[in-house]
Design a protein around this nucleic acid. Structure first.
Lengths: 235, 235
DNA sequence: TGCAAAGTGAACTGATCGGTTCAATATCAT
DNA sequence: ATGATATTGAACCGATCAGTTCACTTTGCA
């Protein structure tokens, strides 16, 4: 234990090679906060550890190790653990939003549109990623009020807005009859959570049988159309 | 720090076989767990602190102080913090179950029964108590798988079972037409969570406007009947 | 009244963790 | 090459916390 030959065979994760062209390119469009090369590494490591162990369960040393970065570097970027967590959560919410934005052909028949929407919502809800983010957000909503809001706005609320957007068109076309669009959208989203969400959150179902997912999707569409669908004029 | 007499005759946990008159009396009806007078105090204090601060946030010293009991006594009853938490959570779930059991007159018209059921579910979901238990259970479902199961079984699953019980009768009477009873029950429960649950969980809504609660209740009943209600034979 | 069990308080251990510091080193633009 | 900047590793601090121990006091029954 004298010379410390700096054995660092795999110390730095291969996320960013020495050639930092990518980094510099990103600098332009992104914020001016990125003070150094290891910024993204820190964020990635933090995301992995936070997602795996929650806020309290994730130690800063673990994060630094996972990120392949020294603790000093980490603290050079983020003044404290709280802020690091907020940053990670915000980034993840943004990603979630992007995913949700890819919506569906608004002009297809209502049944098709709703079925596809339900399928995507169900798929997202049952994804491991969504579960973990949800878990942390629920647990830490007391400690980080902003986090709760952030998650709600870029999660459930965003979905609601997209649905309202579509439902309005469907109503205008006479396919549906809805008076309170946001409320109806929330109902639809709620119907997509049936059974699955609770079972997954509480670890009751080991896996998520696609059969049940199908049933939920079909059930949601069926019920929504039963309530808001315009029958063919009793012809 | 030399002799270390190692006197452990009492072996802290007072498993107390002999000499407990009161103890023995209680043993009959109650469980065989109540080993001493302060047992309930510990449980109550633990419940308050856990509910207020979550698992990690609650220190054993705080719990002992809140319970008006020495830490030694606390550890005499519960070998560790985990088990204490499990015990508290179990007790709370049982209480929740009792509350839910008080169901409704099964023979009233479907609309009335469903409305009252929805009202109770909504009231429970928006209660501060339910929120806190839910928050902890979600957060700790990883660390305590049993806890997740316990909560699910004495919470959502119990409600589902009661609803199925009723729905079966309503179907038999020809008021409703349902093929998959448990699934329909889950759908109904999901409809009761619309908007409210998410807003409350993520701290978006400061209070819980009773107007919205009413809307959710009426919306749930309306939609459920639209889907499963038996129309008056198109007369 | 006496005695054993129940309960107490306070100190202590060992470990973890968030955050700081700093001298040594690596990287990169010039 | 050179100097500015980013990064490192490791030691360290202070705080917190779960859990232990023990001499002592209280309680309740016989």
């Amino acid at each position: 234990m004298t010379a410390r030959p700096r054995t660092r065979p795999t110390a730095t994760p291969p996320l960013t090679r020495p050639g930092q062209a990518l980094e510099r390119v990103l600098q332009g469009a992104e914020a001016a906060i990125r003070r150094g090369r290891k910024f993204q590494q820190v964020l990635n490591g933090a995301r992995d550890i936070f997602l795996a162990r929650g806020y309290e369960g994730a130690s800063v040393d673990d994060i630094a190790r996972e990120a392949g970065v020294s603790k000093a570097t980490l603290y050079a970027y983020f003044p404290d653990k709280r802020l690091l967590f907020m940053e990670v959560a915000k980034a993840e919410c943004a990603r979630q939003a992007e995913e949700a934005v890819k919506l569906i052909d608004q002009n297809a028949p209502a049944r098709e549109v709703l079925t596809e929407a339900a399928r995507r919502i169900v798929a997202f809800l049952t994804s491991e990623f969504a579960q973990k983010v949800f878990r942390i957000c629920v647990a830490e909503a007391d400690r980080f009020p902003e986090l709760g809001h952030e998650f709600y706005h870029s999660g459930p609320l965003l979905v609601q807005q997209r649905l309202v957007e579509y439902l309005a068109k469907a109503v205008a076309r006479g396919e549906l009859a809805i008076d309170d669009l946001p409320f109806a959208a929330d109902q639809f989203a709620a119907l997509c959570k049936v059974t699955l969400h609770e079972q997954v959150i509480f670890g009751v179902a080991d896996c998520c049988p696609p059969k049940m997912a199908d049933q939920v999707v079909r059930g949601a569409v069926e019920m929504f159309l039963a309530r808001y669908g315009v029958r063919p004029a009793s012809a």
